[in-house]
Amino acid sequence: MRMAALFTLKRVLNAPAVAVSLYAVIVAAIAWASYTGAQQMGYNWQWYQVPGYIYTFTDDGFQAGEILTGLWATILLSLTCFLLATLLGLGVALLRLSGLIVGRAVAIGYLEFVRNIPLLVLLYLFYYVLGPIFGFDRWAAAVLTLSVYHSALISEIFRAGINSVAVGQWEAAASIGMSRAQAYRYIILPQSVRFMLPPLTGEIVNLIKSSAIVSVIAVAELTTVGRNIISDTYMSFEIWFTVAAVYLALTLVLSFGVSALERRFATET
């Protein structure tokens, strides 16, 4: 009897209309709690000011506000870093899987080094130590830090993907005279993409999120922009809510886009 009742309850809760209303109620409750909490602190809400920081519409037409500009910088930074991290990660994975003892040692040394240093310390290392030595600016320091940091994780994704292709595929490639490079290119990597796509998406989402850390060296991306606006206007609640929402929107769009891509990919192979 109780089981049946529970099942009925679950079915009712999962019905689309009920689920959506429930969700709305929960979100409203959270919003209301923060709002009244802020009221009690005597916080002066100025939501009306926020749109101006996102975009303005003047006689010259549409103009991106600081937040949109910051978002664009975050996207650019994340894309650049993701590309670099992917290349670096692939290189490290291939080195690690190569028959060369030196190659494997270099790869493992690199991975242990990068994985066991806090991201923030790595950033300081690039900005305050290597930056002056090699003469690169804060943007370059940010790009290098994030690329190196995420290349370690991405190389593990590549390694796992490559290792999940059956040994027989290597042997078949070798038996028709392919070199190791040809086997990778034509036989192994195309088959491992399927295993790598989901974790790679996860990694680009992680990268977008961890890119916020470069605000500590004042690279003008989304988080830095948010902080700057707040120091001018003291609207910390509105701006941090907005910045969080923008990150959320970006990562959600990305996740949905990639899962659509994955579905197409899955039906093709």
Partner: peptide, 20 residues
Amino acid sequence: MRQLRQDVGMVFQQFNLFPH
């Protein structure tokens, strides 16, 4: 070795065709 493998064909128990 690579040249040699081009001239020596091999058929495996598990076929090992390229599935993609």
